[in-house]
Design a binder for these strands. Structure first.
Length: 561
RNA sequence: UGGGGCGUCGCCAAGCGGUAAGGCACCGGGUUUUGAUCCCGGCAUUCGUAGGUUCGAUCCCUGCCGCCCCAGCCA
């Protein structure tokens, strides 16, 4: 008992509040919601919110609705709702019987707006956008009342009806809440709650000419769904008084509590949908699902697993301070998941030929490799071994430093699961300095890689048979930006800080033949290189399999150099 | 210069008046046919800062400093 208690991660402040409301009897069940606007793809920042909202439901036996906040038809699209549903499902969460839409509540919202007018708490305003800005005042000076603020209830009702019917031009009239133009909180200076938009909505078509604004819609949607805790990000803190005003003024039977937490930022990337859209539209990336994008679809294609993302969200926690998490934390989560689940294979990324002089010319032997070093249940596979092989170009050095324990003049190394080989000579192109081939002899007694006499061979390198190897293409992905915070300097366009080497295509890589059996999306570790997955969008190109590098292995050798 | 927030180890983050959890990173050491994994050990006399209250403060109060958000008919 005590052990499980102390080993558990302490509850974050939001879960503490919810646990308190449940134990005090304020609520019998928690109801949360994940409310994306269908105007872009979900990214890792949304995953934090999804894991929080759906996580709370799972942990407390509560409910979490998936609700599309679709109140702005000019920016939204059905394609986005489809991708969002797919991503939430992929992450491992279940929204139950139905998906909710703010647009489902348009009728109800309209009725409530009429009620607001009848309570003399809303009015139709004809100020132009420019005038509206002037009347709003500034951060330090109060605004002034709109000249239309004291229209009669009857006239407001009539004009709002006319707005709905489409009698007015877009931008000419709005419905405003009547609160306080002198409020130090700008959100309370008679905020607009309905505007005219002559756009076709992806669900309601041309049924409406007026659309409710976020502040008015969100709290009422929460209320209508019986949400108990409405969790959102910090920038909405100033909106909370308005959220509460609407519910109080309308005297709604249910009043959800809005609680804010800080949004996720990661080093070497940007998180706003607007900027991601900009990269997509400007062709800086191949699309929303480009493996370098921190969108869920990009991460999925990169080879990240749902569990790794859920674990990431759990380890960063929920708080209220502005933060920027190192990309290394995310990478660590996928490494630890894949270390356990991904089978191992060998693939030479940048090949250089090795010829084993004393090996029979036409012999091809089969050697046995473990699919996982720590998990025998993953089984074994056989690997063809032949006279000519490929090894990694950087696994040979003409003048190796002391600590380098790979191949070099007079050195012996182990070809993993193969044989121990001894360097004999090498051939190089004198003009370019490129190593053309390396000659070795093998110890026939060392099959499998063990030294018959127990001699110590420090280096073990991977290899692929030249005769049986499978040519593949590899996308080597790296961080998208050159700097930790691409948005830090306001004078520099974030697009100018893109990392030009974020994608390097290796078209001469050679993999062991068993890779031919892989299916798109399969995760694999190429020993000594990293984790890769067979691309899902274009698994083959020019007849060759295409692998995406998810993340490198930790490399303490590379680090000490 | 108005209002709303935030400030605990390099990065996150517990702590809720009784004398600084944990993770990542980092540094040592061990095992290892992946320089991977795994294992062991180290890593804040100090909680933005200055005062105050208290037997006792990271936790309460006050001032100061720093950072973030707000003037869309976006969400």
């Amino acid at each position: 008992m005590e052990n499980t208690e102390t080993e558990k991660r302490p509850l974050d402040f939001i879960r503490q509040i919810i646990a308190g409301d449940l134990s005090s009897g304020k609520h019998e069940q928690s109801v949360t919601r994940f409310p994306p606007e269908p105007n872009g793809f979900l990214h890792i920042g949304h995953a934090k919110s999804i894991c929080l909202n759906f996580g709370v439901a799972v942990e407390n036996g509560g409910i979490c609705n998936l609700r599309f906040d679709d109140t702005n038809p000019s920016k939204e699209d059905i394609a986005y709702v489809d991708s969002i549903k797919e991503d939430v499902k992929w992450l491992g969460f279940d929204w139950g019987k139905q998906v909710h839409y703010a647009s489902d509540y348009f009728d109800k919202l309209y009725e409530l707006a009429i009620l607001l007018i009848k309570k003399n708490k809303a009015f139709v305003c004809e100020l132009s956008p420019e005038q509206m800005r002037e009347y709003r005042g500034t951060l330090t000076t109060p605004g002034k009342d709109s000249p239309y603020r004291n229209r009669s209830v009857a006239e407001n009702l009539e004009m709002f009806e006319a707005m709905k019917k489409g009698d007015f031009a877009e931008g000419s009239h709005v419905l405003r809440a009547k609160i306080d133009m002198a409020s130090p909180n700008l959100n309370l200076r008679d905020p607009i709650i309905y505007r005219i938009l002559k756009a076709t909505h992806h669900r309601t078509g041309d049924q409406w000419q007026i659309y409710p604004m976020y502040d008015y819609t969100h709290c009422l949607s929460d209320m209508l769904e019986g949400v108990t805790h409405s969790l959102c990000t910090l920038e909405f803190q100033d909106h909370r008084p308005l959220y509460n005003w609407v519910l109080e003024t309308l005297e709604t039977p249910c009043h959800p509590r809005q609680i804010e937490f800080s949004r996720l930022n990661l080093t070497y990337t940007v998180m706003s949908k607007r900027k991601l859209l900009q990269m997509v539209e400007g062709n800086y990336v191949s699309g929303w699902d480009d493996p370098r994008m921190l969108t869920l679809s990009g991460l999925r294609r990169r080879g990240y697993t749902p569990a790794s993302i859920r674990n990431f969200c759990a380890t960063i926690g929920i708080g209220k301070s502005d933060s920027r998490i190192s990309m290394g934390v995310l990478e660590n989560e996928i490494r630890s998941d894949l270390n356990v689940h991904a089978e191992r294979r060998m693939c030479v990324l940048d090949p250089v030929k090795v010829i084993i002089d004393n090996y029979p010319d036409d012999l091809i032997e089969e050697v046995v490799g473990k699919n996982h070093p720590q998990n025998p249940d993953k089984g074994v596979r056989s690997l063809p071994f032949s006279k000519e092989l490929y090894i990694e170009r950087n696994d040979f050095m003409e003048e190796p430093p002391k600590k380098y324990h790979r191949l070099g003049p007079d050195r012996e190394v182990r070809l993993r699961y193969g044989y121990l080989v001894q360097y004999v000579s090498h051939v190089k192109d004198e003009s370019s300095g490129e190593i053309l081939e390396i000659h070795c002899t093998y110890d026939p007694e060392s099959k499998g890689g063990s030294a018959p006499d127990g001699r110590k061979v420090k280096g073990t390198i991977h290899w692929v048979s030249a005769a049986k190897g499978l040519p593949v293409t590899i996308n080597m992905y790296d961080r998208l930006f050159k700097v930790e915070d691409p948005e830090a300097d306001k004078d520099i366009d974030f697009l100018d800080q893109l990392n030009p080497d974020s994608q390097v295509v290796l078209s001469h890589a050679i993999a062991e033949p068993s890779l031919a059996e892989m299916k798109p999306g399969d995760n694999i570790q190429f020993e000594r290189q990293g984790y890769f997955c067979l691309d899902t969008v274009a698994p083959t190109k020019d007849g060759k399999l295409v692998f995406n590098r998810t993340v490198t292995l930790r490399d303490s050798w590379e680090k000490r150099k």
